[in-house]
Design a binder for these strands. Structure first.
Lengths: 152, 152
DNA sequence: TATATTTGCATCGTGAACGATATAAATTAT
DNA sequence: ATAATTTATATCGTTCACGATGCAAATATA
């Protein structure tokens, strides 16, 4: 009768499920190199720009530092990156790739293409993806703004 | 130069972020009643059809039983539901709502509307949501099928 | 009817997420 | 310059996710 509570009418459940399933699709490709998906995201950020403070990495990923710090420590223990105290600002920890961390980019070069092609289907094609990106960006920006308003 | 690894070109990062942020939007509404978002999902399933075995709940949410079992135990400890051994099949645990669990539906009646309206923006409107749902369903079904093929 | 396999659920270990809180360095105000 | 505030990061506790594994009940096979 009342469809408000029907799982099939829920945007969030779709996002939650799609996110989990696509992360699972990354798993076999990343675990070969001992990486998790969030760790892979950190690598994307550092390949883009090396030697960033924790805060910049967290902001780029829209995560809190209390999520990123332990993640970075695990990656440091794996020899993928280093964390060194900032010179200009002693509070900052500057995160830099090791050679091992840089080399992973070549080893993982097939990952985006492999995962990307695994989600293609009738309703998700090169033609429809820009529209999907636009809607997801809209949702993300909207929710980001709502959060900022609350914290004022 | 090579945009494959750019965070802004990644579908998964968008899904991951959108999922996290919208779950955060649920948080203040649900925590008032001591619920988490995955627990709310279990309630949606049980409000739809009470007295289901663990397996049916897990399948409906596309989760594994090793994720759902501890979650159900916490909800049982809160007095939201009961878990009783199946009669026809002694391996099954039948999960049923308590009066408290049923009453939560009235108390949370404003949640879908509240969260739903919080994501509306230029690119996400009642007119565009069906298209978004279709694409997310396409991705989910595609990845679900890929998983099943692997397990054969 | 024994034996083998499958099924349903649970346990365990690891790694996120995240709210709440702590701490020290930097900045601002007095 | 001293005190108050802000900022950058870290610690802690709880709750997912999920791969790996275990176990007992049910089913299939020999």
């Amino acid at each position: 009768m009342d469809g408000r509570f029907n799982l099939d009418n829920q945007l969030c459940f779709r996002l939650y499920t799609a996110s989990r399933l696509i992360t699972q699709a990354y798993h076999p490709l990343l675990s070969e190199y001992g990486l998790t998906y969030p760790q892979y995201l950190v690598l994307l950020v550092l390949w883009e720009k090396d030697a960033q403070p924790v805060n910049d990495i967290a902001k780029r990923l829209l995560l809190e530092t209390n999520t990123v710090t332990p993640l970075l420590k695990r990656m440091e223990a794996e020899g993928i990156l280093t964390r060194t105290q900032g010179i200009k600002d002693a509070r900052q920890m500057i995160v830099s790739l090791t050679p091992k961390g840089r080399n992973l980019q070549k080893k993982l070069s097939a990952v985006p293409e492999t995962v990307g092609s695994s989600v293609l289907c009738d309703s998700v094609t090169p033609a429809t993806v820009p529209g999907l990106f636009g809607m997801l960006d809209g949702i993300i920006n909207q929710l980001k703004n709502n959060k900022n308003e609350d914290n004022q």
